[in-house]
Design a binder for these strands. Structure first.
Length: 493
RNA sequence: GGCCCGUUAGCUCAGCUGGUAGAGCAUCUGACUCUUAAUCAGAGGGUCGCAGGUUCGAUCCCUGCACGGGUCACCA
């Protein structure tokens, strides 16, 4: 991929020179006392006098990212990707030969250094190098120091460069993974247990989406990469696990956009003896928790809008939401033929399968979604678009379901779980009709799941939260590719 | 998939109505023992995304393709 430039030749030459000088360019380890971040954290606030008095001797290691070479003394910066530390190298401390050697190290090389800490005239914490060890060679030239790596394609294809060149990028991912850690702690402290369920499923279920297909040779069967873990997690409720969650990948064979990656991370959790109202409360508590832990801010700026992440969040009935933001009346929306006609009129005949479910989805997305900037629970979805939710105890034709929207995105989806096997089978059969009407994504009948329900599933509520989108909101990022370490890109030939 | 934009040195970017390319950083050589976008003096580095076309002549105009970005459609 990379052509050999003069600079690469020089770096390769330097590598050879190291070997010839008897210096191992790829040693096995370095016995460092503290990492760069610890040093910066512990000693940054100390005064020049304190440092001088305490004579703090330490050793650390990192990648060289800046060189300022002078005749008899030079300055370098090394980084661990997060923090950087200035090094001061003096000829009369390390000796002429070693000084000359260090000067040949390139930007990107790893070094281990040992010495005392002091502050320069300008007040920067600096390590006077007394001894050093070469730790690894960087053979390719690095991006530029002022602007970093700007090219989005390179940033995604060579994320490792992005991570140690662009601190903002590094921060997004640190935040993401700390958030996931806190979510685990939040659920663990509520007696949840984290489980793993199949990624490869004979019948893809639990969501409405096109799956990836793969093949198992020994069994000679096609399998589907899961589009959701839902039906397996609910089998665990049948099996006696009362509180379970899974944080893992789902795969959907659909378009790639600023909000969609073919594989994405989902938190799904199920809680026995609870209903959708309980999970609405739990969801608000989770946001509160993430704010208290310093993961999320109370307010976040997203595309110029200030989003208030601290609960409580507003609530809006699904049908009323459409009535509010569209020219349609409640009666229009509940009238199936009329709504289908309206949706088909909007979308064009070729673009919409004429089922009530598809029409509902379509008008909701068309009229409502872009208005949902502040966190909003959309409630009580119609049965036609909620094949796995329990019928609403007060509203006929509706289900006990909620979706949490913010920043024009769906972040969470939860409901009281349908545990009546007869109704569930009936709903699956209605999905089959939709499939016959041309809806390729309608749910398939999973008889094995029905069988599990026939053994009895306790009343329960479950919810899925999109981890990538949650990261986007918390970090104020517009593109899902910015929050996925290695987003899917077309391979470059 | 449609439309719009981008692709020029390792990186970040200029490049006028078409006359075979420039800067900064990085690299190399030299000077410099508190620099921090270090400084000073010099040097090297390019199949202008790919393939065609128009033209005496194309980085520039046209067509196609590739990859990326944005947007719409699709997608819970």
């Amino acid at each position: 991929m990379s052509e050999i430039t003069d600079e690469i030749k020089v770096r390769e030459e330097k590598l050879r020179n190291l070997k010839e000088a008897g210096i191992e360019p790829y040693p096995y380890s370095y016995d460092l006392k503290e990492n760069i971040s610890d040093i910066v954290k512990k000693y940054r606030e100390k005064s020049e006098e304190e440092l001088e008095k305490e004579e703090i001797e330490t050793s650390t290691a990192g990648r060289i990212i800046a060189k300022r070479i002078m005749g008899g003394a030079s300055f370098f910066h090394i980084t661990n990707g997060k923090d950087k530390l200035q090094l001061y190298l003096k000829k009369n401390i390390v000796g002429n030969e070693r000084y000359k050697l260090f000067k040949t190290f390139d930007l990107g090389d790893f070094v281990g250094v040992k010495g005392k800490l002091f502050k320069t005239r300008t007040g920067e914490l600096t390590l006077v190098v007394e001894d050093f060890k070469f730790l690894s060679k960087c053979l390719l030239p690095l991006p530029e120091k002022w602007h970093g790596l700007q090219d989005k394609e390179l940033r995604f294809r060579q994320r490792y460069l992005d991570l140690f060149i662009n601190p903002e990028s590094r921060e997004i991912f640190e935040k993401r993974f700390k958030m996931i850690r806190e979510i685990r702690r939040f659920l663990d402290s509520r007696d949840y247990i984290e489980v793993e369920t199949p990624m490869m499923q004979p019948i893809p279920g639990g969501a409405i989406a096109k799956p990836f297909i793969t093949h198992h040779n020994a069994l000679n069967i096609d399998l589907y990469l899961r589009i959701a873990p839902e039906l397996y997690l609910k089998r665990l409720l049948v099996g006696g696990f009362e509180r379970v969650y899974e944080i893992n990948r789902n795969f959907r064979n659909e378009g790639i956009s600023s909000q969609h990656n073919p594989e994405f991370t989902m938190l799904e959790f199920y809680q026995a003896y609870s209903d959708f109202e309980d999970l609405i409360k739990l969801t608000e508590e989770l946001f509160e928790y993430l704010i208290n832990k310093g993961i999320a801010s109370e307010k976040v700026n997203f595309e110029g809008n200030e989003i208030k992440l601290s609960p409580p969040f507003q609530k809006l009935d699904f049908i009323e939401a459409i009535a509010k933001y569209s020219p349609l009346s409640k009666e229009d929306i509940l009238n199936k033929e009329k709504l289908i006609a309206h949706a088909v009129g909007l979308a064009g005949e070729d673009n919409l399968v004429p089922t009530y479910g598809k029409a509902l989805d379509y008008v909701f997305d068309e009229y409502v979604k872009d208005n949902l900037i502040q966190p909003t629970f959309i409630l009580n979805h119609p049965e036609e678009i909620s094949p796995l939710s329990k019928p609403h105890r007060k509203m006929p034709g509706r289900t006990e379901r909620f979706e949490l929207f913010m920043a024009k995105m769906e972040l969470a989806n939860g409901f009281s779980e349908l545990n009546d096997p007869d109704i569930q089978l009936q709903r699956f059969k209605e999905q089959v009709k939709d499939r016959e009407a041309g809806d390729e994504e309608a749910h398939l009948i999973d008889y094995d799941y029905i069988k599990a329900l026939q053994y009895g599933m306790p009343p329960a509520a479950g919810e899925g939260i999109g981890i990538d989108r949650l990261t986007m909101v918390i970090t104020g990022t517009r593109s899902i590719k910015e929050v996925i370490l290695f987003p899917l890109l077309k391979p470059k030939s």
